[in-house]
Design a protein around this nucleic acid. Structure first.
Length: 572
RNA sequence: CCUCCCGUAGUUCAAUGGAUAGAACGGGGGCCUUCUAAGCCCUAGAUGUAGGUUCGAUUCCUACCGGGAGGACCA
């Protein structure tokens, strides 16, 4: 049993003994460690109801608690305006450090979702459009949420939904046909092909806005759904293939791999079937030749599911997709990660789905991550001012490589490059994951690629230092010592055991930033410890304990960084 | 016009209704003959405005101001 549960039980028992009922027990870590390791505010909450002075009541509760203490708790004190503070004992901390060392890669895991299957959909780029920096956000958030769910014992099915039909494709194809002469030949590089498709999309998109080609593009759109024009389909296949290969290259760099790729071309028919069913049941209605869902009945807004031309919109395809997921995998939970510009939309779609397939809708949740904005404002692929995902990765890599070269830790250039890639990805992932999900991320290139201060590289560097010190100690013959005799009373020793609590909370709230915040302060604690104590010192009797502590720190860091999708370079 | 999200140091972000609102960058000042200075230590600096609920509000409620997103044939 973990110490938090233990304290909760003791507290519950004490309250019962004093005949205080119906209180939610909240245990928190005081911001300031001098106030103890856990604190509760029950006395302040109950004081009025019990007709007592909060301080006096706190003292009464504390007195009752003291009757039930065990070795893990050093003392219980009343402080402030009525907080009851718990101070954990040296023996607890010593034990926890050893426990972490032995748990290794399992430390931080829990069984909250044991035997469950969870599908997580994320990244979702669209063929014929560039995979931009925003998709990197979706990928970072989705991958981290997936790993948090895995840490809770569930099996995760990673899904990626790619829009290979629809107006955006028609716009790109229209542009490609216009510029057919400029189309790069088959033997040209992938970059050239992607760049050609990208500029064709921008052109088609602009033409559509000005109405000059609207009709042509609408026809192309329809023709793609119907696969009616073989010449067009040839061009379509060419572009689709190039896009997908390009995406795959990026996924590889990101270290994510998907179990399922869904395409809009395969969800449209399923969706139309559901809409048809909904029309019969009165969930949908016809209006001006289109099929719509009146969201106003439920405090939402109206959306079009089938256009007046008879084409399914994203709404319909999404109905099909979400139902399809349950058909093929029957997960216990389906999580969809997208930008929060889709949050309101998703509510409408899900409401409609809940009226037809409640069993699917109930198990489907949407997580909206913030939008990526530059200091100048939102990026838009229609305006052609987006930051490409691949470009962003490359730029980050060159910054990291420069720094790595300056460090001169590597002799082999290939290893140097590999480490730089790991560091660059860490910088990006950290920037995206450090803040509360749902809030926009202002992407300042200089700052995000900075490798100093609170950053991904800072975490990696702390780990690397620890590894190097541990190796040095072992080379000098120091052996791990878990006698528990050398407690140093550092912040590091007091913070490591909290990791599983952080993981649990981050998973429950789908909020990886708790892990980021925790790892940052843990790394900071380690760096302070590192500055004040020499780890590799065979003449010091406590060296074995310091080695143990260092290794426990590494275990926490390694597991935490894994959850964030951040790898660890060999050297920095 | 309507709906949703967000306003915290100069900047980018934290803070399950609690204790002295935490970090980082940037500014100022220190620390490498000792395990990696991508580090550590010291220092200055913030809750948009006005009310309300509460023993206690950055957090909850109301209004206003400011920013973002969405709002019938886009995704």
């Amino acid at each position: 049993m973990n110490v938090k549960t233990k304290i909760e039980e003791i507290l519950g028992k004490s309250l019962k003994a004093l005949d205080i009922k119906d209180v939610d027990i909240t245990l928190e870590h005081p911001t300031d460690m001098s106030h103890g390791d856990y604190a509760t505010n029950v006395a302040m909450i109950c004081a009025k109801r019990e007709g007592k002075n909060p301080l006096k009541l706190a003292e009464e509760i504390a007195e009752e608690i003291r009757k039930n203490l065990d070795d893990d708790i050093e003392k219980v004190e009343v402080a402030g305006s009525g907080f009851i503070n718990f101070y954990l004992s040296e023996s607890f901390f010593s034990k926890s450090v050893s426990f972490i060392y032995y748990s290794g890669g399992d430390f931080g895991k829990n069984k909250n979702l044991e035997n469950k299957r969870v599908m997580v959909e994320y990244t979702d780029p669209n063929p014929f459009k560039e995979l931009h920096a925003g998709h990197l956000m979706s990928n970072s958030v989705g991958e981290s949420i997936s790993r948090l769910i895995e840490f809770s014992g569930a099996e995760v099915i990673r899904a990626n939904y790619q829009g290979d039909v629809g107006p955006h494709v028609a716009k790109a194809l229209w542009g490609m046909m216009k510029k057919e002469k400029e189309r790069p030949p088959e033997n040209s590089s992938l970059e050239e092909k992607i760049s050609f498709i990208g500029s064709a999309y921008v052109e088609g998109s602009a033409a559509y806005e000005k109405e000059e080609a609207r009709k042509e593009i609408d026809e192309i759109n329809k023709a793609i759904y119907e696969k009616s024009n073989p010449e067009l389909m040839k061009l379509y296949s060419w572009g689709r293939e190039a896009s997908l290969v390009h995406f795959e290259e990026i996924y590889k760099k990101l270290g994510t791999s998907f179990n399922h790729y869904f395409f809009e071309s395969e969800t449209a028919e399923r969706g139309k079937k559901i809409v048809k069913e909904g029309l019969k049941k009165g969930v949908f209605e016809r209006s001006e030749e289109a099929v719509i869902f009146k969201g106003e009945k439920y405090g939402l807004h109206t959306r079009v599911f089938v256009t007046s031309l008879g084409l399914p919109t994203y709404e319909t395809k999404d109905l099909g997709l979400n139902a399809y997921k349950f058909e093929i995998e029957s997960p216990n939970l389906s999580v969809v990660v997208t930008g929060n510009e889709q949050t309101e939309y998703f509510k409408v779609m899900l409401k409609a789905l809940s009226l037809l397939h409640p069993e699917v809708a109930e198990k489907t949740i949407h997580i909206g991550h913030g939008m990526l904005t530059t200091p100048e404002g939102k990026m838009s692929s229609r305006k052609g001012n987006v930051m490409g995902g691949g470009t962003l990765l490359d730029d980050a890599e060159s910054v990291a490589l420069k720094k790595t070269k300056e460090g001169g830790k590597f002799e082999n250039e290939e290893e140097e490059k590999k480490a730089s890639e790991t560091i660059a990805l860490a910088a990006i992932r950290f920037t995206v994951l450090k803040q509360t999900p749902g809030k926009n991320v202002v992407f300042d290139f200089e700052r995000s690629l900075s490798l100093e201060g609170d950053s991904g590289p800072y975490l990696q560097y702390s780990f690397t230092r620890a590894a190097s010190a541990a190796k040095r100690a072992e080379d000098l013959g120091v052996k791990v010592d878990e006698s528990g005799k050398f407690f140093l009373n550092t912040e590091l020793e007091r913070i490591l055991y909290r990791f599983p609590e952080v993981v649990e909370r981050a998973q429950k709230e789908y909020a990886p930033h708790y892990v980021v915040t925790y790892l940052t302060s843990t790394a900071s604690s380690f760096n302070v410890f590192y500055a004040e104590h020499k780890i590799a010192d065979p003449d010091d009797r406590s060296s074995g304990y310091k080695l143990l502590l260092t290794k426990s720190f590494q275990a926490v860091m390694k597991n935490g960084l894994y959850i964030l999708g951040i790898g660890i370079p060999d050297k920095m």
